[in-house]
Nucleic acid binder design. Structure first.
Length: 642
RNA sequence: CGCGAGGUAGAGCAGUUGGUUAGCUCAUCGGGCUCAUAACCCGAAGGUCGUCGGUUCGAGUCCGGCCCUCGCAACCA
């Protein structure tokens, strides 16, 4: 009998810095899906790993005074530790610096080149010598430099390009004929409308501006574009090369699903399929762009000081609670949130009270009334049938939810069973039965039914909270947690000994815990703050070329149709000038009016969205915060920076 | 007029092809129970379903206008 194969991947994690719980969510989600498919009998291959090349990594390493390799070794180690800590059941962990991957990517690149899908070209464009700028055909105004209006000439900057447009129609057909390919569906429109319909540009797939990457084998000055490198991991991990595809590849490709963040959907639903088409390989069946885990309604970031790490959560709440929260509190298509308050609330109500207490009270009663021995379940009574139906019917519902990757909903189905069992205790009142010897057989059956229900719950939980599942099974003395066993009631044998009633999740005193967390994590971060690397020294006369002035904002308004642009009118001496600046997200126009700002006065004028900008307003930016620079005391506009 | 998603009880979310008292979880209040982790069970209160208008016997669910939030794209001298 051939098992259905199931190949599932996470995106490989970028090794620029330590991942936070929002990044980690992806691998927990993927793990639950992978485990579930194993549970229902599929032959699963689960791939995860790290993406280790690129300019950013090179820069960070340089700033730290270590080699890029040292840097990625460190971060990749951290990422792997986090995965292991969270009990992630990956079958393979790939690193893009792995030797076999590097070689395979070089061969893939070569193959695409040999087939004519990648060609060596020049940075397609027109060069304006005075401006030292490249322009594409569409950027030119009347065939002249849009900056200065002077003549431009065709120029050559060597680079490799991928003929994306060649596969555009084919990809469009594929997307049309496979409605499940891009999930959630709303994302599909974004891809089609923004990229495919307007027409794909050829993609520049090599770089010469940095060296930390996979060199083009036959042209070593060039480094392969990181996305070509990174996306290939899904097949190189299976031993794929263009010449020799490898056993794993033959067995598992195409992937059943790539689980990725919604931000990189474009690479996975456009570039990646086209790469595969060019290689003549089948496309993945599905790409799921999962939502983000936010803190409150903000993204996690160091500058906001709201970053939550998996290891902190695990230390305080345990692995399974972290898995539970990540899987249950994240909606399917909308961003979810995490805060310590909500975490504790879910922990107490769902894990400690509803689930933990059910197991605890059941085991305690078996110990108390029957010396820890499970009785036979043959004295039926009211409520039994309903309990059994709910317990044995759950798995089918869960399968339905999991087929569409609705993980949170599938967990809800398990909790329906838990709720039903708690209610059953109330309905059958075992403590009343215990008072009368004649009711003992019935009491034995009631507890048997509960144990059996809990056994099914434990089995169903195994994909989501594997250790909790095991702990429950141990406590009730169950050994059959198979998929098949969840559909039948009555597999446990009379005479089985249960364990001691130990709470699975100790209730948390929210106030105390929050205070503790505050003290521990509220401390100023000892972590090094990574500022942007410094630029090279310049001569004083170069500095002097800059003409920075003070201007007084007399008008400021949003540029229509633009989300970033503000249009400023500055008073400069007795003149005014218009400058555009992409800072609308950080400042309201009205708060800037009347303020002095600093601007570069001798930057060449440039048109942006049809409006002329005469200079550049200076701002300071760190991570995702920004503020315009202003003067401490008032001073005549037009004043020079000295 | 770039494309798209969403605005439903205090909070977070469901609401199939329009149909009887708009659901779920948490929080709140009342009651029950005592096996259990101040847990569990039952019940109640709490919503003009963003707004205005239209279609219909009937609309959260269809149509149109408007307001707000978010994502993608463009823009960030």
């Amino acid at each position: 009998m051939n098992k259905d194969k199931y190949y599932i991947t996470t995106a490989i994690a970028y090794t620029s810095k330590k991942p936070h719980i929002g990044n980690t969510y992806e691998i927990i989600l993927t793990d639950a899906i992978a485990r579930f498919n194993r549970f229902i009998g599929k032959d699963v291959f689960f791939l995860t790993g790290t993406d280790e090349h690129g300019q950013k990594i090179q820069e960070i390493a340089e700033a730290d005074g270590i080699t890029p390799q040292q840097h990625v070794d460190k971060i990749a180690g951290q990422i792997r530790d986090i995965a292991d800590m969270l009990n992630i059941s990956y079958d393979k962990f790939i690193r893009t610096t792995d030797d076999y991957h590097v070689k395979a990517v070089q061969q893939i690149f070569k193959r695409l080149y040999d087939n004519g899908d990648i060609y060596k070209g020049e940075y397609e464009g027109w060069y304006c010598t005075p401006c030292e700028s490249f322009w594409t055909k569409t950027q030119l105004e009347d065939g002249k430099c849009p900056d200065c209006g002077r003549e431009v000439r065709k120029a050559k900057e060597e680079a490799y390009f991928f003929k994306m447009s060649k596969y555009q129609d084919k990809l469009m057909d594929y997307i049309d004929s496979h409605p499940e390919f891009i999930q959630p569906e709303s994302r599909k429109n974004e891809m089609v409308n923004n990229f495919l319909k307007p027409g794909l540009q050829d993609l520049c797939v090599s770089r010469t501006s940095f060296t930390w990457g996979i060199p083009v084998e036959f042209d070593p000055g060039h480094v392969i574009y990181v996305w070509i490198d990174a996306l290939s991991n899904y097949i190189t991990a299976l031993g794929y090369t263009p010449d020799e595809k490898g056993e794993l590849y033959k067995k598992y490709w195409p992937a059943d699903v790539h689980i990725i963040g919604k931000d990189i959907l474009r690479f996975h639903t456009i570039y990646w399929p086209i790469m595969l088409m060019a290689l003549g390989e089948p496309l993945p069946k599905q790409v799921f762009g999962h939502p983000w885990m936010l803190v409150g309604d903000e993204k996690m970031s160091k500058s906001r000081g709201n970053v939550i790490y998996a290891e902190d959560l695990v230390r305080h709440f345990g692995v399974n609670a972290v898995r539970y929260y990540s899987l249950h509190e994240m909606p399917f298509a909308q961003d979810g949130t995490i805060t310590y308050e909500v975490f504790i609330s879910r922990f107490n109500s769902d894990l400690a009270n509803t689930l933990g207490n059910l197991v605890n009270r059941t085991v305690a009663m078996i110990n108390k009334y029957f010396g820890g021995e499970i009785q036979s379940g043959d004295v039926g009574g009211e409520f039994d049938d309903d309990l059994k139906a709910v317990a044995t019917g759950a798995v089918e519902k869960i399968i339905k939810k999991m087929e569409t990757l609705h993980v949170a909903d599938s967990i809800d189905e398990i909790w329906r069973v838990v709720d039903r069992a708690n209610k059953y205790i109330d309905e059958t009142t075992p403590w009343v039965l215990a008072k009368n010897d004649a009711d003992k057989p019935r009491l034995g059956t009631v507890l048997y039914n509960l144990t059996e229900t809990i056994r099914i719950i434990a089995a169903l939980l195994s994909s989501y909270m594997p250790e909790t599942s095991k702990k429950i099974a141990e406590q009730i003395g169950a050994d059959d947690l198979t998929f098949e066993s969840t559909k039948t009631f009555g597999t446990m044998k009379a005479g089985t000994k249960v364990g001691e009633a130990v709470p699975l999740f100790a209730r948390i005193d929210a106030e105390k815990k929050l205070a503790e967390l505050e003290e521990e994590l509220g401390e100023p971060e000892e972590e090094k703050i990574e500022i942007a690397p410094y630029k090279d020294y310049i001569e004083f006369d170069e500095f002097e070329k800059l003409d920075v002035r003070v201007g007084k904002v007399i008008e400021c308004e949003k540029v229509p149709k633009s989300s970033k642009l503000l249009r400023f009118t500055l008073q400069v001496g007795s003149e005014t000038r218009q400058i555009l600046s992409g800072i609308a997200k950080f400042h309201k126009p009205e708060e800037l009016i009347g303020k002095n700002v600093l601007f570069v006065a001798n930057l060449k004028p440039r048109k942006i969205m049809g409006l002329e900008s005469n200079g550049m307003i200076l701002s300071a930016e760190f991570e995702d915060k920004l503020t315009v620079l202003t003067t401490l005391n008032d001073i005549q506009s037009g004043a020079e920076m000295v």
